[in-house]
C-alpha cells in the first residue's frame, strides 16, 4: 500500500484575526500534527486568511447526533424566559 494511503485526516480551524474565534476550515491529510499544520497553512492560508491555526485529529472530535437533536437540545426548548425578548418593559422607555 502506498504510504499516502495511511495518513490520517486532521480537522483544520483557522483564526481570522487576533481576538476572533477559531472557525472550521476543512481537513488535511498528514502523518503527524506538525506536518498537518504546514499542510493546513498551504491549503487554507495562502492569502492571509488567518493568524493562527489549530489542527485536531479528525477521530478526536466527538459530535452530537443529528438524529437525537430533538431530545438532546430539549432542555433549552421550553425556557423562553432566558431570552431578553421575553420581558415586557415600560412603554416609551428608550433603553433598559
Amino acid at each position: 500500500m502506498d504510504s499516502n494511503h495511511q495518513w490520517p485526516t486532521w480537522e483544520v480551524f483557522t483564526q481570522k484575526k487576533q481576538g476572533a474565534a477559531h472557525e472550521h476550515a476543512g481537513s488535511v491529510h498528514a502523518p503527524d500534527g506538525e506536518i498537518a499544520l504546514l499542510n493546513a497553512r498551504d491549503v487554507y492560508g495562502r492569502r492571509q486568511e488567518g493568524v493562527n491555526i489549530w489542527v485536531v485529529p479528525s477521530n478526536a472530535i466527538i459530535a452530537s447526533s443529528p438524529e437525537d437533536a430533538g431530545s438532546f437540545f430539549d432542555p433549552a426548548n421550553d425556557k423562553m424566559y432566558r431570552s431578553p425578548n421575553f420581558f415586557k418593559t415600560a412603554d416609551g422607555l428608550k433603553q433598559i
Binding site: D2, S3, Q6, W7, P31, D32, E34, I35
Partner: peptide, 13 residues
Amino acid sequence: VRDAAKAYAEKKK
C-alpha cells in the same frame, strides 16, 4: 516526499 514525511513522523514518535 510522502515517504520522507512518514519516516520523519515515525522517527519523532
